[in-house]
Every structure is written in C-alpha cells, then in structure tokens.
Computed example of a mutant assay.
Amino acid sequence: MVRWEPGTPERLQRAALELYAARGFEETTAAEIAQSVGLTERTFFRHFSDKREVLFHGQQLLVQAFLDGVAAAPPAASPIEVVAAALRSATAFFPDERRPHSRTRQSVINRNPALQERELHKLASLAAALADALRARGVSDSAATLAAELGVTVFGIAFTQWIREGEERSLADIATGVFGELLALTGGSS
C-alpha cells in the first residue's frame, strides 16, 4: 500500500468525490475511499472525522479569504463596501480551473439532504465569521449581521450561477453582477 505519499488529504478528497459522483454518497464507505488510493480506513480517519468532512475540508481557507478581504478594506469603508471587499477576496479562492471540481461536488451535495444541511451550516458559519469581523471594525450588531448575511447570499447566488453548465464568466465577474443587483434593489452604491 502507498502510505507515505505526500498530499494524502487531497488524494482522499479526489477519490471520495469520484466515488460519490459515480456511486452516491450513501453507497460509498470510508474504507472504499481509502482503498481506492491504496490507504487504510484508519488512515482515512486520521485526516477526516467522517466521510462528509471530505467534501468540506478546507472550509477555514474560504472563511480566511473573506476575512482577508475585510482586513484589506479601507478603515472608512461602509459595512457594505467591506462586504464587497470580502467578496472580491473570496472569489479569488475559486479560479476557473476549480469549476469542474465545484460542479461535481455540488451535484453530490444536491443529491443528499444531510450534505445539503452541512453546506447550509458552512454558509451560516461563514456569515457569523464575517459578521464578527464587521463588529470588530465597529459596525453595530444588527448592521454587521445584515451585511454579512447579504454578502454570503450574494456569494451563494454567484456560486450557483458559476457552476452552471455552459457558464464561462469568472466567479468574480458573476459576484460583481449579483452585488450590483443587490445595490440596485436597495438603492445603494458601493
């Protein structure tokens, strides 16, 4: 068995996604994922707490991308301008090369209610982290929560459009357009 090859979590993630897409999430075991890349089930559980987490590994990197955008926003920026900066930063996390992977991952999630719930939890955690970062900049509690929730909603809508078959625009371009629609609806500007 190949035990000490570098990139074990990434290899397990790729294998899991392929198996989930081909056979279904429920029908695939952690042991099968590990065996498909020449590892043991025990090795799988050294890297992931359960087979759901293979799909959500690296979530903190996305959160950090949003927070980096908050940190880069000018001190005098309004809450919505800070959210726009966070969105710009986060969309860089999804270059066009990731689109096929993201499409496959989302199709697996869409076919399983428990994974859909986990995805919603991920987005709620992202909104909470973004709201906390806004509060740390002195934004009031309700304004921080509202701005963060709006930002995550814009991200979610843009991401859904980005992974559609035939879509060729970058996530950044789509998010900019969706954010513009939000501003038009509210009569605001960034």
Results as ranks from 00 to 15, higher is better:
Leu19Glu: 06
Leu19Met: 07
Leu19Lys: 12
Leu19Pro: 08
Tyr20Pro: 05
Tyr20Ile: 02
Ala21Gln: 13
Ala22Val: 07
Ala22His: 11
Ala22Lys: 11
Ala22Trp: 04
Ala22Glu: 08
Ala22Pro: 00
Arg23Gly: 06
Arg23Cys: 07
Arg23Glu: 13
Arg23Val: 07
Arg23Asn: 06
Gly24Asp: 09
Gly24Gln: 12
Gly24Asn: 09
Gly24Trp: 12
Gly24Cys: 05
Gly24Leu: 08
Gly24His: 15
Phe25Ile: 11
Phe25Arg: 03
Glu26Gln: 06
Glu27Ala: 15
Glu27Gln: 15
Glu27Phe: 14
Glu27Ile: 08
Thr28Leu: 01
Thr28Met: 01
Thr28Asp: 01
Thr28Ser: 07
Thr28Val: 08
Thr29Phe: 07
Thr29Gln: 08
Thr29Glu: 07
Ala30Trp: 03
Ala30Val: 05
Ala30Leu: 08
Ala30Met: 03
Ala30Pro: 05
Ala30Phe: 01
Ala31Lys: 13
Ala31Ser: 15
Ala31His: 12
Ala31Gln: 15
Ala31Val: 11
Ala31Trp: 14
Ala31Asp: 15
Glu32Trp: 10
Glu32Ser: 03
Glu32His: 04
Ile33Phe: 11
Ile33Thr: 03
Ala34Pro: 04
Ala34Arg: 06
Ala34Cys: 02
Gln35Gly: 10
Gln35Thr: 08
Gln35Met: 06
Ser36Gln: 09
Ser36Phe: 09
Val37Pro: 04
Val37Ile: 13
Gly38Asp: 11
Gly38Ser: 00
Leu39Cys: 02
Leu39Ala: 05
Leu39Thr: 02
Leu39Asn: 00
Leu39Gly: 01
Leu39Ser: 03
Thr40Lys: 09
Thr40Ala: 13
Thr40Ser: 15
Glu41Pro: 01
Glu41Ala: 00
Glu41Leu: 04
Glu41Val: 00
Arg42Phe: 10
Arg42Ile: 05
Arg42His: 05
Arg42Leu: 07
Thr43Trp: 02
Thr43Glu: 04
Thr43Lys: 04
Phe44Asn: 01
Phe45Val: 02
Arg46Asp: 11
Arg46Gly: 10
Arg46Phe: 09
Arg46Met: 10
His47Glu: 09
His47Ser: 04
His47Lys: 02
His47Met: 04
His47Cys: 08
Phe48Ile: 06
Asp50Gln: 12
Asp50Cys: 10
Asp50Phe: 07
Asp50Thr: 13
Asp50Gly: 13
Lys51Gln: 06
Lys51Pro: 05
Lys51His: 06
Lys51Trp: 00
Lys51Leu: 02
Arg52Gly: 13
Arg52Ala: 15
Arg52Phe: 04
Glu53Phe: 10
Glu53Ser: 09
Glu53Leu: 07
Glu53Ile: 02
Val54Arg: 13
Val54Asn: 11
Val54Tyr: 12
Val54Glu: 11
Leu55Gln: 09
Leu55Met: 12
Leu55Asp: 11
Phe56Leu: 12
His57Val: 08
His57Tyr: 14
Gly58Tyr: 03
Gly58Ser: 00
Gly58Asn: 01
Gln59Thr: 07
Gln59Val: 07
Gln59His: 14
Gln59Ser: 11
Gln59Arg: 06
Gln59Trp: 10
Gln60Ile: 06
Gln60Cys: 03
Gln60Arg: 06
Gln60Tyr: 05
Leu61Arg: 11
Leu61Gln: 14
Leu61Ala: 15
Leu62His: 07
Leu62Lys: 01
Leu62Gly: 00
Leu62Phe: 01
Val63His: 14
Val63Glu: 10
Val63Lys: 10
Val63Ala: 12
Val63Tyr: 14
Val63Arg: 11
